[in-house]
């Protein structure tokens, strides 16, 4: 299928807003390549411009300097080659679960639509829920429906804007496993914005660490280790220590002693 497709490149990208007649730089000279089929996390504290960066990739923000390219072509606006999962699930409350998943499939015929909806609800483990309304779902279920909606469009790239941020800690860990399973199954590029260090390490091939005012890339960490990852392993802990150091939150003692 679309194995080679789904490369996203950001080149010399800068963006600033005008606040009270003063320019405020949000992003400064960002350069990243998101390889096709990779899981990449953008990690940073709030206000570092990571969500703005994601909205640029999505095509909702179009005024900036530099380039944002998908498979070598400039992003002009939102398109069906990218899917998005927002932090708030953003399901439409007047549509059933099934209708919400079909939201982007409006142009297809009824039969294909039903097939795709069934397939993706099954994928996220919610078969049989197509008649329910969003208000009847728990936070984790709603977010799974949102993921199904994004995947049903068969995007090359799935953008995730703190997708698990509103969930409780245990549901969150469970959903991280689910995301990994979906990524392995779909074999598409996934780009996730998060401020959860463990989540980034657990899921990513590559972590991009950003710092704020202005938003710049501090460091890029590649994680070669095999999956599924053990959150308690020393390798995991070492990467975590390395990242926390970037935020000046590292322990004074090496992690080896702490274990």
């Amino acid at each position: 299928m679309s194995v080679a497709k789904g490369t996203l490149e950001i080149r010399n990208l800068s963006k600033s807003y005008v606040v009270d007649n003063n320019p405020l730089q949000i992003l400064k000279n960002i350069n990243i390549t998101f390889p096709a089929g990779a899981f990449v996390s953008i990690l940073g504290s709030s206000g570092c411009g990571k969500t703005t960066l994601l909205r640029i990739m999505l095509g909702l923000e179009t005024s900036y300097e530099g380039d944002a390219l998908i498979d070598g072509e400039k992003i002009e606006g939102p398109g069906s080659n990218r899917g998005i999962v927002f932090q708030d699930h953003r399901l439409l409350p007047w549509l059933t679960v099934g209708e919400n998943v079909a939201f982007g499939l409006d142009k297809l015929n009824r039969k294909t639509k039903k097939l795709l909806v069934d397939e993706h609800l099954k994928l996220v483990g919610l078969s049989g829920f197509e008649g329910a309304y969003p208000a009847q779902l728990s936070g984790g279920m709603a977010q799974r429906v949102a993921i199904a909606r994004a995947l049903a469009n068969k995007p090359e790239i799935l953008l995730l804007d703190e997708p698990l941020g509103a969930l409780d800690a245990l549901t969150r860990m469970y959903m991280q496993k689910e995301l990994e399973r979906l990524w392995e199954f779909e074999k598409i590029t996934m780009i996730m914005v998060t401020h959860d260090v463990d989540e980034a390490i657990y899921l990513s091939d590559k972590i991009i660490i950003m710092s704020s005012r202005p938003g710049i890339i501090n460091k890029i960490i590649n994680i070669p280790s095999s999956r599924p990852r053990d959150r308690a392993s020393s390798e995991f802990m070492q990467i975590k220590a390395e990242i926390l150091n970037e935020f000046h939150l590292g322990s004074e003692y090496p992690f080896a002693y702490a274990i």
Binding site: D88, H89, R90, L91, L92, P93, W94, T96, Y133, P134, A135, Q136, L137, G139, A142, A166
Partner: peptide, 9 residues
């Protein structure tokens, strides 16, 4: 079906 209009969570 619209229990809370803002869409729950």
């Amino acid at each position: 079906g619209r229990v809370s209009f803002d869409g729950g969570a």
